[in-house]
Amino acid sequence: MSSFEYNQAPLRVVFGSGTLAKVPAELHRLKVSKPLILCTPEQTFQAEKIEEVVKSGEGITPAGVFPKATMHTPGHITDEALEFLKSSGADSLVSIGGGSTTGLGKALAVRTGLPHLSVPTTYAGSEMTPILGETVGGEKRTRSDPKILPTAVIYDVDLTMTLPSGLSATSGVNAIAHSVEGLYAQNGNPIMSLMALEGIRSLAASLPTVVATPSDVHTRSQALYGAWLCGAVLGNVGMALHHKLCHTLGGSFNLPHAETHTIVLPHALAYNAPAIPEVMHKLADALPGSDGDAIHGLNILLTKLKVKRGLKEFGMKEEDVDKAAEIATRNPYWNPRDIEKDKIREVIRRCWAGEEARADL
């Protein structure tokens, strides 16, 4: 076995059904009493639910709700939230929602040092990582710092029951992408590979049922479990081409996060396939119906989930392909296969057009 390093992040996780009621106990554990609640404009009803739960805790008074969390964590929103936080006298943060809200919570926590309790409602996995992506000046930049990692996470399966089928699908594939890159990460290790494959299996098996029968509690639980594992993988290993492309496309062209990950994943994997034969074999085993071909397995899964496959369906223009290729190759992340600009351009073009992935580059 090759040598490796493994670090265990100090993160507390509470998983189950009805666990939202444990928010006051977790705040007491953190020894805080005045949390600022964060959400997107579309999720104020969930923030209000959290607010009521928090009020039920002895000696805890919410500092208010900041309902403007936005996709890709734009700098001006973080600045506004920071001013709101300072004026509220908050001593902690509670974020409820998907990656947008979690990202804002991370941005505020790393700037203030306040404890951050994350309550995810999607399968994005951001709550398990010390990684923060922020958009400033039209470009999304990422950084990693242990202080970015939320202090604790409460997974409540009940909160995912109303997640629309389409968003469940793309959010779940977004999570799978975290583990796929974890399998060939430069700083990967056997522990993360075990978690990655288990997370992929759980999501690939459960997502088609989640989409077909959204009210199935068992498969919702299986999907959330898989997402937790995939998020933990991303939080412990580095990123490569897939995430670089998604950060470029999302931050520079304002494309939706989960949908972009869903579209890019099979194409980025196809590009890297020649350099990672052992990973491709393991991944194929984790994907139902793959017939030994991981790319085929992903194509089958995306077909079952009935997701959109082209970035042009989300507003990206064909003339943006060249600009995206330029940005994506300017400061590339480490990748198992050398980055060749003309071939990366073709990967992006296929993502834009919505073609099925194929390993011919």
Rank of each mutant, 00 (worst) to 15 (best):
M1Q: 11
S3Y: 15
F4S: 11
E5Q: 12
Y6N: 09
P10W: 12
V14L: 14
G18N: 14
T19N: 14
P24C: 13
R29I: 06
L30M: 15
C39F: 09
Q43C: 03
F45C: 02
G59V: 02
G59L: 03
G64F: 10
V65H: 09
F66Q: 00
A69N: 02
A69L: 12
G75K: 15
D79F: 06
F84P: 02
L85D: 00
K86M: 12
S87F: 12
S88W: 06
A90V: 02
I96C: 02
H116A: 14
S118W: 05
A124E: 01
M128L: 07
T129K: 01
V136K: 15
G137R: 15
E139F: 13
R141S: 08
S144A: 15
D145F: 11
P146Q: 14
I148P: 02
L149R: 00
T151F: 10
A152R: 01
N174Q: 02
A177I: 05
G188Y: 07
G188F: 05
P190F: 08
I191W: 14
E198S: 14
R201Q: 06
A204N: 02
A205V: 05
S206R: 01
V211R: 06
A212H: 13
P214V: 13
P214H: 11
T219W: 05
Q222F: 04
L224F: 11
L229V: 08
L234V: 02
V237F: 10
M239K: 13
L241V: 13
H242S: 05
H243E: 00
L245T: 00
S252C: 11
F253V: 01
L255V: 00
L255D: 00
P256L: 10
E259W: 02
T262N: 04
L265E: 00
A268T: 02
N272K: 13
A273R: 02
P277A: 07
M280N: 07
A286F: 07
P288R: 10
G297N: 08
L298M: 15
K304N: 10
L311A: 00
E319S: 07
D320K: 00
I327N: 04
W334E: 13
P336A: 10
R337L: 14
R350V: 07
G354Q: 07
E356Y: 06
L361R: 06
